[in-house]
Design a protein around this nucleic acid. Structure first.
Length: 292
DNA sequence: AACCAGGACACAA
DNA sequence: TTGTGTCATGGT
């Protein structure tokens, strides 16, 4: 299983790897010394922030690099996105605090399954659940022996054949039947995740929300983090509190009003703005008293 | 040791 | 439409 490791330097400006990998859009990366270990598209990968960009260590560079470049969205010019954000005080503060935070482009199935498991769970626990799921149902991937075994994210076809009890053993509780149903729906072709790419935002959201356990919020996470619909704007409890306290501090706004506000106020890259707000309130404001 | 977590859903009013 | 109880599980 152990082969030569290739090291590649990926040029990237304005890229905060740590913020990106810990901002709750992905759950498979863990810090190891000054680097990050993860598995992308079935390949073991080590990433390290360096002055001119990102150093990647992979087993087979020519097999991994195209997918990794897309995953990290290395060709995206961050500045051209940030300039579309509204010029208001909350966004200025969020950008000042989180500059370099990026949106990844994830695999739809892994993203969908992960966020089905995310409901009313802390990010740390989501990481645990996803880790167990990969250990038990993924397949081992080639990795340097010093880093221990690594596992791929199990495909829908695999998970469609397990039983609910085995999923519950991964500590996912009441989410188990939701994940199983989603896996079966994808495996049987009732939901074609590749075809969703060709859908309009509303069509794609409707297709995902057809699944049990997938509501507006989880659907929007997948639309933003996997499919890259730039205006998908997931509103969870953190973002809702942020919108309420930062933009409507006087009067109480309903969830529906906040949803409508998010669709008009944040511009063409509203989803990106959402990620900045989310990470900002969680790391800088730490969900402080005026946000709750 | 209670409390609560990147929600969704069924059900009430 | 808008408001509540419920669903597992474990970290703090």
């Amino acid at each position: 299983m152990e082969q030569a490791v290739g090291s590649v330097l990926l040029a990237a400006r304005d890229y905060d790897l740590a913020a990106t990998l810990t901002s709750g859009q992905v759950f498979r990366w863990r810090r190891h010394e000054d680097a990050w270990l993860g598995v992308v598209a079935g390949h073991w990968i080590q990433l390290r922030q360096v002055p001119i960009g990102i150093q990647a260590r992979v087993i087979n560079p020519q097999a991994c690099l195209p997918g990794l470049t897309n995953y990290l969205q290395l060709t995206v010019d961050l500045n051209s996105i940030l300039t579309t954000f509204p010029d208001d005080e909350p966004m200025r503060a969020a950008v000042a605090a989180c500059r370099g935070l990026r949106l990844l482009r994830q695999d739809p199935w892994e993203c969908l399954a992960s966020f089905i498991l995310s409901s009313t769970k802390r990010i740390l626990q989501i990481q645990q659940i996803v880790g167990l799921l990969c250990e038990r149902f993924g397949h081992p991937v080639a990795a340097p022996p010093a880093f221990g075994p690594a596992f791929s994210f199990p495909g829908a076809e695999r998970l469609a054949r397990v039983n609910e009890a085995d999923l519950r053993a991964c500590k996912m509780g009441f989410r188990a039947p939701y994940l199983l149903a989603a896996a079966q729906s994808v495996a049987e072709g009732r939901l074609d995740l590749e075809r969703v790419r060709t859908f309009s935002l509303d069509q794609a959201r409707e297709a995902l929300m057809n699944l049990p356990g997938v509501g507006r919020k989880i659907a929007d996470c997948v639309l933003l983090f996997a499919y890259g619909y730039p205006s998908a704007f997931p509103i969870d409890v953190w973002v809702e509190n942020a919108l309420q306290s930062l933009y409507f501090p006087r009067r109480r706004a309903t969830t529906r009003h906040l949803q409508r506000f998010s669709e008009t106020h944040f511009g063409p890259n509203a989803g990106y703005a959402q990620q900045y707000l989310f990470h900002y309130i969680r790391t800088v404001l730490k969900g402080g008293s005026d946000l709750k």
